[in-house]
Simulated assay, not measured.
Amino acid sequence: MSSINVSSKNMTHKSALVTGASSGIGAVYADRFAKRGYDLVLVARDHARMEALAERLRRETGVVVDILQADLTDAGELAQVEERLRTDTHISILVNNAGVSAASSFIDQSPDEVAKIISLNTIALTRLASAVAPRFVRAGDGAIINISSAVALVPEFGLTVYGATKAFVLFLTQGLHFELGSKGVYVQAVLPASTQTEIWERSGWDMNALPPAMKVDELVDAALVGFDRRETVTIPSLLDAEQWNTFDAARQSMIPNFNQVDAADRYRLASKPYVRQLS
């Protein structure tokens, strides 16, 4: 992992650290926060692409950009990004964007492929949030943007491991909202549907076989509207927000019924014939 300070200017502005920043969603988030006046810390494996992005953003916006080349599935390199989040008091926004998928079905994925998806999409994301959250709480300010996916809500799509990791990200975000929101820390889950990023090709998908997808710029701009509104869950492609509200209200309505000392009648009544038979 290498760190390059691309400007000698003192870092007096707030900064945003963006993972998966070399392309796609991460690169657009970097562009948008730079245009909002934030200095940047870009994290990804592809140093050359980050350097090109940094040079453009410095030229167009005058912000300070620091490049951290890191593979977040490598424990040592991940630890260095964690340390940056713990100690750099200029960083007030973490964009947890880095992620990976696989085109193959669960039974065709090797244990190593499964482990890589889980490692990047959940473990690295959680460790980075864990590294920065205590400092945000002490400051009473800060924001964590976690990129989940609409797949988190659709097991029917068959992206079992990827979808499970994104469901984890959604739950984590909702949990952090309840834990940290009252302490001044804003946490947002963004659930893109199909988006025109390189993740599909890198995962082995046939791009010609995929349905039309949202442009990355439109996705991020919509997500930032949700960010400015302080939404906990932002689904840019969902046309009717009441569908999510109804879904979430149905979930909340079940909560009082979970903590029961007796099993539901439908299970107790069904088991009685077996009890009599064994007696």
Results as ranks from 00 to 15, higher is better:
residue 254 M to Y: 11
residue 208 N to R: 13
residue 144 I to V: 12
residue 220 V to W: 03
residue 272 K to A: 10
residue 54 A to N: 01
residue 236 P to Y: 07
residue 203 S to I: 03
residue 221 D to A: 11
residue 72 L to Y: 02
residue 145 I to Q: 07
residue 28 V to Y: 06
residue 178 F to N: 15
residue 104 S to Y: 02
residue 23 S to L: 12
residue 128 L to D: 08
residue 130 S to N: 13
residue 202 R to Q: 13
residue 214 M to G: 02
residue 123 I to G: 01
residue 129 A to I: 05
residue 121 N to E: 02
residue 234 T to N: 09
residue 154 V to L: 15
residue 45 R to C: 06
residue 38 Y to D: 05
residue 201 E to Q: 15
residue 195 T to F: 07
residue 85 L to K: 02
residue 91 I to S: 05
residue 274 Y to W: 12
residue 274 Y to V: 07
residue 108 D to Q: 15
residue 241 A to W: 02
residue 216 V to N: 01
residue 157 F to D: 12
residue 94 L to M: 09
residue 23 S to Y: 08
residue 58 R to W: 06
residue 129 A to Y: 04
residue 124 A to Y: 07
residue 133 A to M: 12
residue 266 R to I: 14
residue 258 F to Q: 10
residue 96 N to L: 08
residue 83 E to H: 14
residue 57 L to Y: 00
residue 221 D to K: 13
residue 40 L to M: 09
residue 162 Y to I: 06
residue 54 A to F: 00
residue 125 L to Y: 03
residue 53 L to Q: 04
residue 51 E to H: 04
residue 122 T to A: 15
residue 153 L to T: 01
residue 184 G to T: 09
residue 13 H to N: 15
residue 73 T to D: 04
residue 145 I to D: 05
residue 257 N to M: 14
residue 218 E to G: 06
residue 91 I to C: 06
residue 191 L to A: 04
residue 269 L to G: 07
residue 73 T to C: 10
residue 122 T to P: 00
residue 55 E to T: 13
residue 25 I to P: 01
residue 217 D to S: 11
residue 111 P to N: 00
residue 47 H to C: 03
residue 176 L to V: 05
residue 252 Q to N: 13
residue 153 L to V: 00
residue 272 K to L: 14
residue 256 P to Y: 08
residue 230 R to D: 07
residue 171 F to S: 15
residue 226 G to Q: 05
residue 106 F to V: 13
residue 52 A to Q: 10
residue 16 A to H: 00
residue 138 R to T: 08
residue 102 A to G: 09
residue 230 R to F: 06
residue 22 S to A: 14
residue 11 M to K: 13
residue 181 G to W: 08
residue 125 L to G: 00
residue 57 L to D: 04
residue 192 P to E: 04
residue 164 A to M: 11
residue 179 E to K: 11
residue 206 D to W: 02
residue 152 A to S: 14
residue 90 H to F: 00
residue 19 T to I: 08
residue 66 D to K: 08
residue 158 G to E: 11
residue 98 A to V: 06
residue 38 Y to I: 08
residue 83 E to V: 11
residue 35 K to T: 01
residue 107 I to P: 00
residue 26 G to M: 08
residue 244 W to S: 06
residue 247 F to A: 14
residue 23 S to H: 13
residue 86 R to C: 05
residue 129 A to P: 01
residue 89 T to H: 11
residue 116 K to G: 00
residue 54 A to T: 03
residue 36 R to W: 07
residue 185 V to W: 01
residue 50 M to H: 00
residue 194 S to A: 14
residue 60 E to N: 07
residue 199 I to L: 10
residue 244 W to M: 14
residue 17 L to K: 01
residue 47 H to S: 05
residue 49 R to E: 07
residue 17 L to R: 03
residue 117 I to E: 00
residue 196 Q to K: 13
residue 213 A to W: 02
residue 219 L to T: 08
residue 231 E to A: 13
residue 115 A to V: 03
residue 110 S to M: 10
residue 20 G to T: 06
residue 184 G to V: 10
residue 152 A to R: 09
residue 9 K to P: 05
residue 102 A to D: 13
residue 166 K to N: 03
residue 156 E to A: 15
residue 52 A to C: 01
residue 68 L to N: 05
residue 117 I to C: 05
residue 256 P to R: 13
residue 229 R to E: 15
residue 87 T to P: 09
residue 143 A to I: 03
residue 220 V to T: 06
residue 95 V to E: 07
residue 166 K to R: 10
residue 36 R to K: 15
